[in-house]
């Protein structure tokens, strides 16, 4: 790691004040991506603003009406094991339980993962499919507007995610095909149905990060059944190719994971 100044803060306000004064400061949430990146000297923030002491205010899960509110510092383990999440959006609890490994889930946070927008991360697919809203210390941003590209989000400098609000869907499921080496999503497909609105989102596969699979959505909007996906396939264009999976294989897996997700969402 390169040298940095360490700041421990106990509130979002203090964090954002500090961030505004330090242009290349970074927030430290779980650190599951940031710290390895810094260890490899691939990131060199001048300061780290440690949010872990603000966990009391920034973490927690609440059901409010037909929404679930999850604080930004809520650990993956807590989302995966929350009775509220398991009841309202079991797909989201499932997804949180598939991130990294148990030790990573104990530390990693939803806010950190969403802000990082790693193209192979799991959470972005859930936010986009469930039409979640990202609350920051400054504003509310819909998931559609939030994820803007590879490791890119709508967050402005110094802007801090405080919580994420998920509308409860009528049906949802997440299917992940992990990269054999890293266990990140090589292809992850989240399907969600809320009223007539069906969303199918794909992570891990796209060369510009998470995306919605329009063809699949249209087919499932007509009827939310696996048979609706017969003959529908994803195109390899714009998908990643690497030693573990070429674009054609990823495209194929999107179809497989989508069908399996629909079956799961339908309780099959």
């Amino acid at each position: 790691m390169y040298q940095f100044t360490y700041h421990r803060v106990d509130s979002a306000r203090k964090a954002s004040n500090l961030a505004e004064k330090n242009e290349d400061a970074k927030f430290l949430a779980g650190g599951m991506t940031l710290l390895p990146t810094m260890k490899q000297r691939l990131a060199s923030p001048s300061a780290l603003i440690d949010l872990n002491s603000a966990s009391e205010k920034l973490a927690g899960i609440e059901v409010k009406g037909r929404n679930i509110h999850i604080g930004a510092m809520t650990r993956h383990y807590d989302v995966a094991n929350s009775k509220d999440v398991q009841e309202a959006i079991p797909a989201l609890a499932d997804l949180a339980g598939m991130i990294g490994d148990p030790a990573v889930r104990h530390r990693g946070t939803i806010g950190g993962s969403v802000a990082n927008n790693d193209p192979a991360a799991d959470y972005p697919s859930a936010l986009l499919a469930l039409n979640a809203t990202i609350h920051t210390n400054k504003r509310k941003i819909t998931a559609d507007e939030f994820f803007t590209g590879l490791f890119e989000t709508a967050l402005e400098p110094g802007e801090l995610i405080t919580k994420i609000v998920f509308p409860v869907p009528s049906k949802a499921a997440y299917m992940k095909f992990p990269n054999p080496a890293s266990r990140y999503a090589m292809v992850g497909v989240f399907v969600a149905k809320k009223g007539k609105d069906v969303r199918v989102t794909v992570t891990g596969a796209g060369s510009s990060g998470v995306f919605r699979a329009g063809k699949f959505e249209a087919a499932l909007t007509a009827k939310f059944h696996v048979k609706s996906l017969e003959g529908i396939s994803a195109t390899a264009e714009g998908l990643n190719s690497d030693i573990h999976a070429d674009a054609a294989y990823r495209a194929h897996l999107i179809g497989v994971m989508a069908r399996r997700a629909v079956n799961k969402a339908n309780g099959k």
Partner: peptide
């Protein structure tokens, strides 16, 4: 009480 990877957490965080 929870398992963590001690190579991926700053000591200062754990005050």
């Amino acid at each position: 009480g929870k398992a963590l990877k001690s190579c991926t957490v700053l000591a200062l965080t754990l005050e």
